[in-house]
Nucleic acid binder design. Sequence first.
DNA 1: AGCCCCAATGTAAACGCTTGCACCGCTCGG
DNA 2: CCGAGCGGTGCAAGCGTTTACATTGGGGCT
Lengths: 349, 349
Amino acid sequence: MAKIQKVAELAGVSTATVSRALAGKPSVSPTTRARVEKAAKELGYVVSASASSLASGRTRNIGVVTPLLDTWFYMKVLSGAQHALLDAGYDLTLYHLDANLGMDLPAQANPRRRRLFEEFLRRKRVDALIAVSLELDAAELDSMRGLGKPVVCVGGPLPGVPTLSIDDHAIARLATDHLLSLGHRHIAHIAGDPDFELDFHLPATRRAGYEEALAESGVEADPLLVRSADFTIAGGYDATLQLLGDPRVHPTAIFAASDEMAIGAILAARDLGKEVPGDLSVVGIDGHDLADFFALTTVDQFPEVQGRRAVERVLHELDGDSSEPANEELPYELVVRKSTAAPRAPREG
Amino acid sequence: MAKIQKVAELAGVSTATVSRALAGKPSVSPTTRARVEKAAKELGYVVSASASSLASGRTRNIGVVTPLLDTWFYMKVLSGAQHALLDAGYDLTLYHLDANLGMDLPAQANPRRRRLFEEFLRRKRVDALIAVSLELDAAELDSMRGLGKPVVCVGGPLPGVPTLSIDDHAIARLATDHLLSLGHRHIAHIAGDPDFELDFHLPATRRAGYEEALAESGVEADPLLVRSADFTIAGGYDATLQLLGDPRVHPTAIFAASDEMAIGAILAARDLGKEVPGDLSVVGIDGHDLADFFALTTVDQFPEVQGRRAVERVLHELDGDSSEPANEELPYELVVRKSTAAPRAPREG
DNA sequence: AGCCCCAATGTAAACGCTTGCACCGCTCGG
DNA sequence: CCGAGCGGTGCAAGCGTTTACATTGGGGCT
């Protein structure tokens, strides 16, 4: 016999009332509700998720898809999302595409990704999806819409999908303008590796912001001052070695597209006997946990907030309040620490 | 009408056969199976997870509980577990206790933790649990056993629960012996913060291994050579500053209980103008992604493998093959890089 | 040729809830 | 004084599978 039945008997009501009382529905008298809750507690009764889902069509479970997992940024986003979901009484099912494999291939060719869309999402396992830094193609979007499940993207914008995006262009400008306002004129840029475009052409966007900032300050962009790296400390280190070793250029500052690369830059500078910020200013993007330790000036993009906001958004969609603006801007903030300062050499025009 | 019905009709069989065919049961003729699969594909049919769970009692979903999320180690374990589960066709539901809050209180006092056991696990949401670095108390264990769901712990041992544990004592000995064998006699230890005992008294165990190794080599342990830190780079940095600044001791090597602390030690040494490994050897534990970059000698504990192994184990339990040894040892390996070398000063007796 | 057995399939009873609809007093306005 | 309206409940029909058990049709044996 369905266990809810026992509770109903103990409380002297029908199963319907038990269901309603435990679900917090309004149409139950306070007295009855109390009686039901007492009975449930007494019997150690907890609603069966599968039965409930089957009957109601809702799972109280939302899926989060990320390209990678063992990365500071995605971790943070995930962490933020998990918190928010927990507080809302939802479970979080994790799905990650190990983007390292086959992200260069067309989406359909990544087996994990195929599976995500062909099985995972259709199984009624989740009520909605949060896709982090994922560019869904048309077929995938149709697939989602066909299921009638809300999708929220973090890191868009993606046509037709509610998206939380951060203004990468503006962030890059902010970082670059910070250096310019300190008086720097020879500003190098360690860009994200364009082959590594998980996100929405993020490397290109940030680079564009950098170049725009330069242009607007009347500084000519020198291609020799731009290097690509893979978003890691090691990558930033190498790129900086190249930059500082090249006799044709003499950067007084580096704007790295991620904090890890910026930290690599600081370490490289030190190894070359240069002082930061005396000989070289460094600014990054992220708000990485290590930024404080390395006294790194950075543009914090609050990844945990991104996760939390995505959850709020998706829950709204589930409530049917989908009449909101399709896109939301995520917050960011310049955090000035000791890795940036005015250039030591006299400024030049 | 149940969707499976449509498939049944299209394939000209009963729903029972469709169910069996799609579940890969053996008692279906190849011909029929093919017909069913074709029909299913044609209709875009996918089994409803909730209906399936309700009917079968299985969810094909397993829960992973970690104390923290935004930490390199748990990330890696999680990543390994997710991979393995995906390959086995299982979903992974994430639950993390934000151990920062209330981990010092008795288990029952942590609200998240209460909730985990009182709701999450009883809801028939998961078939089994993997608990990472979590010390369950008696009530919690009973709770799990009462539900008849397998639990596997990573980082035990825990009485009565299959556990994958790493021999922290041996790891610490290995690291320390490595330094001893290079000729070091003044070996400092940066221990994990004992107030931060998420895992099973890991800091104490590692410290014990360190002391035992010293003792066995006839080196007297000096309490002044042991400092505690919080497992972070910053923590390791500070501890090293203390260690190297203390006029009463002159360590030629440091064994840090985590790679991050070891990296902090390397950075601190550099800042004090000491060379690594010339003036100071440093060894860590973890196999951190950054170890290679910092040329850090470490004992790799393969966290991703830990995640994977936990999954394998739990799936075995689900298959009923619970006749295995209760505890398994996890692999570890000394990886020698350039942060350790013989002490520069002549050895003393 | 007759029988037994097994493989392959069908039948139908769960699985444990949710929820539309019906129903029952009551209060309240007319 | 009566009917409408409404808060609070109960009834029972699903929700979409899985699976124990029954059934069927051959093939191999004696």
